[in-house]
Write a protein that binds this DNA or RNA. Structure first.
Lengths: 216, 216
DNA sequence: ACCAATTTTTAGGTTCGACATATTTTTTCT
DNA sequence: AGAAAAAATATGTCGAACCTAAAAATTGGT
């Protein structure tokens, strides 16, 4: 059991954090993000306002938690690409897998959650920021993997295009979710679009950052 | 004289607006965006706080005014493309012209202004939003010009890639400005990068949305 | 099992942007 | 000149973000 190894304090912290996050998500979905105040969340969680703020410095963090996975995902997919596989191929494969899984990380979040996000300018802005952080992380990995010069613009341009593709597809999943489509309908449709959109980048980036066949 | 045709009321409004904007820009550059309050700006402009808010609904608008030109620029450049010219070619030409002009619209804003923007998370976020509005406008124009089906993902994907290129180049200009480079140094360097970055998109979008030679 | 040190949580307050409403001042048009 | 329209003002509310000091809980050492 993890509780034994991590200690009572740590385990209580996790419970408190989770409880706050759960109450927040419930209230956001019930009443909307902007109409729910930190004080409401604190009251529902039976803690002080400052405790909420301590765990989640910004209100947006309460709705879009687990952003590490989101922002670092594409960079990790590229780092873990197979021998002989390019960055583009790895990201496409990663995306198509996620589509099959109906993974929230590519936009499968359910209708209420999708409504909550798109209904709040604050959350839309935060989502934009997260996409940019993805770009930064991917650009850094691409620069490292290709041994690009520090002032080379190509890794950044490639990252912008690749994350751009993911962003277009994310938007597609979100819009279809808002239109009431089920994950089972959305997944194959968005997979087809992924092939189209990544196909568009193929001539430019088809063999960019390809891992040598025998490496590692 | 314009004052005669537009009337005293309109002319006073413009003066008031300009005065507020000028005081705001001065204070932002002097003390930083986040450390300057609306009350400071109102006091310096000798108007009520609400007057500032009436002219500039959000504080960011005081620093990033004239955003219409920025957001609609690429869409207009494509609409005005020459016969036989593709969207990509028109945007590249437009950018290279702007580089020669040291146009603020591609990032030439001067060191103090560049510092003001990058030093404020609020302004950086607003800039992200403006880039997205650019994308939306360009995607709409591309869809219209190519007669794409309503659910076609290509116009959006193309817009993301093209505006992505502009965004990379904007960032480049801003970073070099922050490094103390002069516009005369930056312009040729960023022009070369523009050729590189747009060249990357050439194989995919080289003839996308090309205006028929004899049209209009 | 207790004590001291550390960490978490709490209480209370301040600042500021955003927003609402009613009132006063200024401009326009007849 | 006077009525109508519009702009600017005064005032107040709300909520997020931030700060500080104090209280409560947990830890590790004895």
């Amino acid at each position: 059991m993890t509780t034994q190894t991590i200690g009572l304090r740590e385990s209580k912290k996790r419970e408190t954090r989770q409880a706050i996050s759960d109450h927040a998500t419930r209230l956001f979905i019930e009443h909307g993000f902007d109409r729910t105040t930190i004080a409401d969340i604190a009251a529902a969680s039976r803690v002080a306002k400052m405790t909420v703020t301590n765990y989640f410095p910004r209100k947006e963090d309460l709705a879009l938690d687990h952003h590490e996975e989101f922002t670092a995902g594409p960079a990790r997919a590229v780092t873990a690409r197979l021998p002989g596989e390019s960055a583009l191929t790895a990201l496409r494969r990663d995306f198509l897998d996620a589509a099959r899984r109906h993974d929230p990380v590519i936009g499968f979040s359910g209708l209420p959650f999708a409504r909550m996000i798109t209904g709040s300018p604050t959350l839309v802005a935060r989502l934009r920021e997260l996409h940019e952080l993805r770009e930064d992380a991917l650009a850094a990995v691409l620069a490292a993997e290709t041994g690009a010069a520090p002032d080379d613009v190509i890794p950044r341009a490639a990252a912008v295009q690749l994350v751009g593709a993911l962003r277009v597809l994310f938007r597609e999943v979100l819009n279809r979710t808002l239109d009431g489509e089920s994950p089972e309908e959305i997944a194959p449709a968005v997979a087809a679009r992924a092939v189209t959109v990544f196909g568009l980048l193929e001539p430019a980036l088809g063999d960019y950052a390809t891992r040598p066949a025998g490496q590692r």
